[in-house]
Design a protein around this nucleic acid. Structure first.
Length: 462
RNA sequence: GGCCUGAUGGCGGAGUGGUGACGCAGCGGACUGCAAAUCCGUGAACCCGAGUUCGAUUCUCGGUCAGGCCUCCA
């Protein structure tokens, strides 16, 4: 195992060395549950799911602890709840359940822990208390603010120079802030909003402190890997780290040993944004394409590069999986040998999750499976399956991949037509055989004649 | 204004100081009654300009273009 990861803090790839190989910890910022997740939300989920699987492969399933939080206190949640006239947990429970279902369809394993802000309130308040106690934070007008001047390394992660931050500020500075960069840890709730008691008055926590507290509660600081979208680098992660370190943790050890950020996903050359109305919801996409194809599409480029989300990308991803499932289907009679993934494949993933290179290896394995003979086929099949499974692919039945959604009626009809066609071909009645093939084509079925019979597939869903 | 990415064939997308992966599409061939699938082969690219170097797509600088962050967006 020679895993190296690009660490945003160091701005370079570093060999991955966990603090404790028997307890590797990873935290990824999860969703705010007030609506359906869009495909951009799914990118970090899938990217870090691949890392989760790779780490489990390397260190053992029980040695990797992965937490992804759920933000369930938020202005947008409040707004939605008010619109529907229901308590916020009606909203958050509903969308969290949908979120988990949708991510499962994309082949993402459930994180070991899925902490929720509302269930971490005591720890959040305790952490704020520590910060106030050691002068890293101060109370003002019902708010509690983090004192960025108290933390000399503030800005180190995102490399935001403090002075410039002020110059570029696009928002009026609240009068109770001692320094423009100071940010909220606790704030009063507005009327009709959820409220919790605290030593600084009733209110609710700021967004950043939630994550710090949830990490500490579910994993313990410092953690090995902290992941999330690049947009969260500043201010969210910078603030999270400042709080975590100042709340009493060792400045030497730090907060997270590796910071990983995935690139943004763009729609049609524009940033996908709900305000632009160009969002693609995972919930809708999985009706139109197999979740596995969407997963493939999300990994087709390197995770740190921006990804252009297009319909063509989904089509190409389906075809890529057609290739791999096709090789497996043609080897359905072969019993896969129990072998580990090839070294070249693992090397690709271990090189900062080079998924495109890993895909290239999978194609190579598929060709090897197609061309190998005898015992070599069993080995090739085993290698392909073992490798793909590390990435969360090829977990389904090849027949199902090609015949997904086919009703029993259609299947019976197709089987009947193929049987007829087989007879016609045996009688060398090519006209009849072609006529039957046309009928199948009309049903959106494509036949593939083989030496011992015919197989078939759905031509195109679109 | 400040900070930070990126620019590779028709498309997507790795990588490398010296033979430029892989997938899709294209072309030729094998196989097939014909196809499809598969196999074999093949054409096709490193934004522009300087510099370093025996040699740069790869390193440095400048330019152009594109994108992100600087408001609780993944």
């Amino acid at each position: 195992m020679a895993l190296s990861l690009y660490d945003t803090m160091a701005r370079e790839k570093r060999p991955f060395v966990p603090k404790d190989p028997s307890r590797v910890t990873m935290y990824v910022c999860g969703p705010t549950v007030y609506n359906y997740a869009h495909i951009g939300n799914a990118r970090p989920v899938v990217v870090f799911d691949v890392l989760f699987r790779l780490l489990r492969h390397a260190y053992g399933e029980r040695s990797v602890i992965y937490a992804a939080n759920v933000t369930d206190v938020d202005d947008k949640i409040n707004k939605k709840a008010a619109e529907e006239g229901v308590p916020i947990d009606t909203i958050t429970d509903r969308y969290l359940a949908i979120y988990n279902d949708d991510m499962a369809t994309l082949g993402a394993l459930r994180p070991t822990h899925q902490p929720r802000a509302t269930q971490t309130m005591a720890e959040i308040i305790e952490m704020i208390g520590k910060l106030v106690g050691n002068k890293s934070a101060y109370a003002a007008e019902g708010h509690v603010l983090f004192n960025t001047q108290a933390y000399a390394e503030y800005g180190k992660l995102s490399r935001q120079p403090m002075d410039d931050m002020i110059a570029g500020a696009r928002v009026d500075v609240a009068p109770y802030k001692q320094h423009p960069a100071d940010f909220v840890l606790w704030k009063p709730s507005k009327k009709n909003e959820p409220v919790w008691d605290s030593p600084w008055g009733p209110g609710r926590p700021g967004w950043h402190i939630e994550c710090s507290a949830m990490i500490e509660k579910s994993l313990g600081l410092p953690i090995d890997i902290h992941g999330g979208g690049i947009d969260l680098l500043f201010p969210h992660h910078e603030n999270e780290m400042a709080q975590g370190v100042c709340a009493g943790h060792d400045h030497e050890v730090g907060y997270a040993n590796y910071w990983m950020h995935n690139g943004f996903l763009n729609m049609a050359a524009e940033k996908m944004s709900k305000s632009l109305g160009n969002v693609a919801l995972v919930h809708d996409l999985i009706q139109q394409a197999p979740g596995e194809a969407l997963r493939w599409a999300l990994l087709v480029g390197h995770y740190r590069a921006p990804l252009e989300w297009t319909g063509d990308l989904i089509e190409q991803s389906k075809k890529a999986l057609d290739r791999l499932y096709g090789a497996l289907r043609r080897a359905s009679e072969v019993e896969a040998e129990d072998v580990p993934p090839p070294a070249a494949f693992l090397s690709a993933l271990e090189d900062d999750l080079n998924t495109p290179a890993a895909f290239a290896e999978l194609f190579g394995m598929a060709t090897k499976l197609e061309t190998a003979t005898g015992k070599g086929r069993a080995q090739a099949k085993g290698e392909l399956l073992a490798a793909a499974n590390v990435m969360g692919f090829l977990l389904g039945d090849p027949e199902d991949w090609f015949q997904a959604g086919v009703t029993d009626d259609l299947r019976a009809q197709v089987d009947d037509l193929i049987a007829q066609r087989l007879e016609a071909r045996a009688a060398k009645d090519w006209a009849a055989a072609d006529r039957i093939r046309d009928e199948l084509t009309a049903l959106n079925i494509e036949v593939m004649d083989g030496p011992t019979g015919a197989t078939w597939r759905i031509k195109e869903s679109g």
